Computed example of a mutant assay.
Amino acid sequence: MATMWGLTVRGICENNGKVLLLKIRSKSSHDAGKWEIPGGKVKKCEYFDDALKREYLEETGLDIDIESLYNVVRNDYTACKTSEEVKSIQLIMKVTCDIDEIKISEEHDGYGWFGWDEVEKMIAEGLLTPAAQKAFNLK
């Protein structure tokens, strides 16, 4: 069977020195209860910047502008619906947004704004998804 490759985009929104993270719902089959950077899969024939704006709006209710590339990571996983092994390339972008009311989707149980020192502590404690840990771990 051929290897499946996927593309995911995530956006790091920083406001007043704090980063927005979403808590994956406790009933999720992947990384339940862990924190992640908002974003998601790019659909077939979709530009990645459009995908990031769509996913951000769906997950947070926020309109974003994409500033720059922050990091690129590979995060392999098993697809829930098909049980296929997927090799995923994740583009991690720096984004800006007007902070209005955040309306999280049903995919998440909560959200929070975390300082960089808090993010480092969360990484050390294993509270972030593997992809988020890789994205932030630039050292």
Score class of each variant (00 low, 15 high):
residue 37 I to Y: 03
residue 73 V to T: 15
residue 73 V to R: 13
residue 108 H to A: 11
residue 139 K to T: 14
residue 102 I to G: 12
residue 112 G to I: 10
residue 30 H to P: 06
residue 42 V to A: 01
residue 118 E to W: 15
residue 100 D to G: 11
residue 9 V to A: 06
residue 129 T to N: 06
residue 54 R to N: 00
residue 121 K to D: 15
residue 48 F to Q: 08
residue 56 Y to K: 03
residue 27 K to T: 12
residue 96 T to L: 05
residue 71 N to G: 04
residue 131 A to T: 11
residue 62 L to N: 06
residue 66 I to K: 02
residue 65 D to W: 09
residue 67 E to D: 12
residue 120 E to K: 15
residue 50 D to Q: 08
residue 39 G to L: 02
residue 93 M to H: 05
residue 135 A to L: 09
residue 4 M to Y: 13
residue 111 Y to E: 14
residue 21 L to H: 13
residue 15 N to A: 12
residue 18 K to I: 10
residue 51 A to N: 01
residue 120 E to H: 14
residue 35 W to R: 07
residue 19 V to F: 11
residue 40 G to W: 02
residue 130 P to T: 12
residue 119 V to Q: 05
residue 137 N to M: 13
residue 16 N to M: 12
residue 87 K to H: 04
residue 69 L to R: 07
residue 57 L to F: 13
residue 52 L to D: 03
residue 112 G to S: 10
residue 126 G to W: 14
residue 132 A to E: 10
residue 37 I to G: 04
residue 74 R to P: 00
residue 28 S to N: 12
residue 31 D to N: 15
residue 62 L to S: 05
residue 43 K to D: 07
residue 131 A to K: 11
residue 93 M to P: 01
residue 120 E to D: 15
residue 99 I to T: 14
residue 92 I to S: 09
residue 34 K to C: 13
residue 132 A to W: 09
residue 39 G to V: 02
residue 100 D to M: 02
residue 112 G to F: 09
residue 107 E to P: 02
residue 83 S to V: 04
residue 72 V to I: 14
residue 34 K to T: 13
residue 86 V to F: 01
residue 89 I to A: 00
residue 6 G to W: 03
residue 93 M to E: 04
residue 4 M to T: 13
residue 89 I to C: 00
residue 124 A to M: 15
residue 121 K to V: 11
residue 71 N to A: 05
residue 57 L to E: 08
residue 41 K to A: 07
residue 44 K to G: 01
residue 117 D to E: 15
residue 84 E to R: 13
residue 44 K to H: 05
residue 52 L to W: 10
residue 11 G to C: 04
residue 135 A to W: 02
residue 101 E to K: 15
residue 54 R to P: 00
residue 31 D to L: 05
residue 4 M to N: 11
residue 129 T to F: 02
residue 99 I to D: 10
residue 83 S to G: 08
residue 105 S to A: 10
residue 9 V to I: 05
residue 68 S to F: 00
residue 66 I to T: 04
residue 105 S to K: 02
residue 122 M to R: 08
residue 45 C to W: 08
residue 4 M to R: 14
residue 50 D to K: 07
residue 125 E to G: 13
residue 38 P to I: 06
residue 41 K to P: 05
residue 95 V to A: 06
residue 82 T to F: 00
residue 58 E to Y: 03
residue 81 K to S: 10
residue 2 A to F: 10
residue 90 Q to K: 14
residue 34 K to H: 13
residue 54 R to D: 01
residue 55 E to W: 01
residue 129 T to K: 11
residue 42 V to H: 00
residue 52 L to Q: 03
residue 130 P to N: 12
residue 88 S to H: 04
residue 111 Y to R: 13
residue 76 D to A: 11
residue 55 E to C: 03
residue 83 S to Q: 14
residue 117 D to W: 05
residue 13 C to E: 02
residue 134 K to F: 08
residue 119 V to G: 06
residue 93 M to W: 04
residue 54 R to A: 00
residue 35 W to L: 15
residue 20 L to V: 09
residue 41 K to T: 04
residue 114 F to L: 12
residue 83 S to M: 11
residue 92 I to L: 12
residue 129 T to A: 09
residue 4 M to G: 03
residue 55 E to L: 03
residue 71 N to R: 11
residue 32 A to K: 10
residue 36 E to A: 07
residue 23 K to D: 03
residue 116 W to E: 15
residue 59 E to W: 00
residue 23 K to T: 05
residue 95 V to L: 07
residue 130 P to L: 12
residue 48 F to W: 14
residue 24 I to K: 08
residue 77 Y to Q: 11
residue 10 R to A: 13
residue 43 K to E: 09
residue 5 W to S: 06
residue 67 E to A: 03
residue 127 L to G: 13
residue 138 L to A: 15
residue 75 N to I: 00
